[in-house]
Amino acid sequence: MSDAYDVPGGKLKLKGVTKKKGASLVKKKTPTKEEVPAPKIVLPEDPRTESQKRYDEIQSKREMDQIKKKASKSHKQKVEEFNKYLGSLSEHHDIPKVGPG
């Protein structure tokens, strides 16, 4: 009685492919640093137009100015300015009392 899975063992072989004898016996010479050329680094061109470059430059400058402005004040100064601002608002902005009494 034969099994339903009667499969021969071993490696798969491709038809028409032959292994060259002696190819594994030849050692390859490893190149030295002087023989290997240094890889060339090619930077891609900037696809932006001149006006886009200027716009980005101005935006980064404004951002840096804002960061410097915010970093120049201490927390105490910021709280004092905020309280002064709230004090200058009209009664319309006051929080109405809710509840009895």
Results as ranks from 00 to 15, higher is better:
M1I: 02
D3H: 04
D3Y: 02
D3L: 05
D3Q: 04
Y5W: 12
D6T: 01
V7F: 13
V7C: 06
V7P: 09
P8W: 06
P8T: 12
K11P: 15
G16S: 13
T18R: 11
K21L: 11
G22F: 13
A23Q: 08
A23Y: 09
S24V: 03
L25H: 02
K27S: 09
K28V: 10
K29Q: 09
K33M: 06
P37D: 14
A38C: 01
A38G: 06
A38R: 11
A38I: 04
K40D: 13
I41Y: 13
V42K: 12
L43E: 15
E45F: 00
E45Q: 13
T49H: 03
E50L: 04
Q52N: 00
K53T: 03
K53A: 05
R54F: 04
R54H: 09
R54D: 14
D56Y: 02
I58M: 04
Q59D: 08
K61Y: 06
M64R: 09
A71L: 03
S72D: 08
S74I: 03
H75Y: 07
Q77S: 03
K78C: 01
F82T: 10
N83L: 11
G87A: 14
S88Y: 07
L89Q: 15
S90Q: 08
H93S: 09
H93K: 09
P96Y: 14
V98G: 03
V98E: 14
G99A: 05
P100I: 08
G101M: 07
